Simulated assay, not measured.
Amino acid sequence: MPKLPKPGSLVDAPRGNWVDSFAPDWLLPYARLARWDRPIGFWLLFWPCAFSLGMAAVADPGAGFDWVALILMFIGAILMRGAGCTFNDIVDRDIDAKVARTRLRPIPSGQVTRTNAVAFMVLQALLGFIILLQFNFFTIGLGIASLGLIAIYPFMKRITWWPQLFLGLVFSWGALVGWSSQMGSLGLPPILLYFGTICWVIAYDTIYALQDREDDALIGVKSTARLWGDSAKAWVGAFYAFAASLWLVAGLLAGGSVVFIVGLLVVAGLFTWQVVSVDPANPGNALARFWSNYWVGLIFTLTFIAEWLI
């Protein structure tokens, strides 16, 4: 079996990542299929779970912060992001073969067969379901309800200019799950947190999609980056503003105070930096701004934890 080229050949994988450095040959293509060499994806899936757990702790300080749930959701995010990426690559194998950034992915490059990819996807999904079973019945049902959105997302870039919205619906689900795992139900704060997180995802994934605008135009793939064209920066800024505003109301309703507001101002500063400094004509610049959303999630999570502690 031919090997994928080493670090740097997969454009959106950081050089020297642990998969390229340490994964054995038999695991390497599957690790890349699950995007373990690009951890930003599972972090972005995990952070809404984390800051939703933090908001629940602020709303009910006596119950404390559930560190066990945090660890379980982190493992679940890795598994479900891997399963989702595998499914996406199965569906998009013909498209990926035509795009410079994705043609070296394991399926279009022949590293993994479609049958083996399906088996790998099922394995990850089953392990993720085992993680889900550790929570209350309401949260289990909520997790199962997300499967429909996960199933339709890969097809959205073919039929709508708003695939980033559908990604937002999927990647923001943790904003509901974190809260429900502690409260056994939903309420206005997690719902507002969810909608704010959707706006966050739309904005950062539009920045990510700036890398592919030329290839996407050639093969007919739709995105908000293409839809908004030269106005992309303004639209990204607007959605970041919506995200911060909805998060502000959600946090205040849950009991946040000055500590929460200060943390959210730091997040807003990161949003502003991304919008002001992003260069749509420079793929490396856009990718770096996209990656910086790791810090957005971390700071927002720590904001809620600090609010709970103080």
Rank of each mutant, 00 (worst) to 15 (best):
I150T: 13
L149I: 14
P154Q: 06
Q164L: 10
F137A: 15
A125H: 04
L147D: 06
Y153H: 05
R158G: 06
I159Y: 12
L147W: 08
W162S: 03
I150L: 14
R158P: 04
Q134H: 14
L142K: 02
L123C: 11
M156P: 02
A151Q: 03
T139W: 02
G141D: 11
A119I: 13
I152S: 11
L132F: 09
L123E: 02
I131E: 03
I131C: 07
L133W: 05
G128N: 02
F138M: 13
F135K: 07
V122G: 05
P163M: 08
T160K: 10
I140N: 00
A125T: 11
L149C: 10
A119P: 00
I140H: 00
P163K: 05
A117R: 04
P154E: 03
I152T: 09
A145C: 07
G141Q: 11
M156L: 13
G128P: 01
M121K: 01
W161L: 11
I130V: 13
L127H: 00
K157L: 13
I152Y: 08
A119D: 06
F137S: 15
L132Y: 06
A145N: 07
I159E: 05
N116Y: 09
T115L: 15
T160N: 06
Q124K: 08
Q134C: 13
G128L: 00
I159Q: 06
G148W: 10
L126Q: 02
G143H: 04
R114L: 15
Y153I: 03
L123K: 00
L132N: 02
L132P: 03
I144K: 04
A125Y: 06
S146E: 04
R114H: 13
V122F: 09
Q134W: 11
A119Q: 10
G148D: 08
F155G: 11
N116T: 06
N136Q: 07
I131A: 05
L123M: 13
G148I: 11
M121N: 04
F155S: 10
Y153P: 01
I140W: 01
T115F: 15
Q164N: 14
Y153D: 00
L142E: 02
L133Y: 01
I131T: 07
I131P: 01
V122P: 01
F155Q: 09
R158L: 10
P154M: 03
V122S: 06
I159L: 08
A151E: 05
S146L: 04
L132V: 13
A145H: 07
A125I: 05
V118N: 05
F138I: 12
I152P: 05
L142C: 08
V122E: 02
T160S: 15
G143C: 09
N116M: 12
I140S: 00
A125F: 12
F138H: 11
F120K: 02
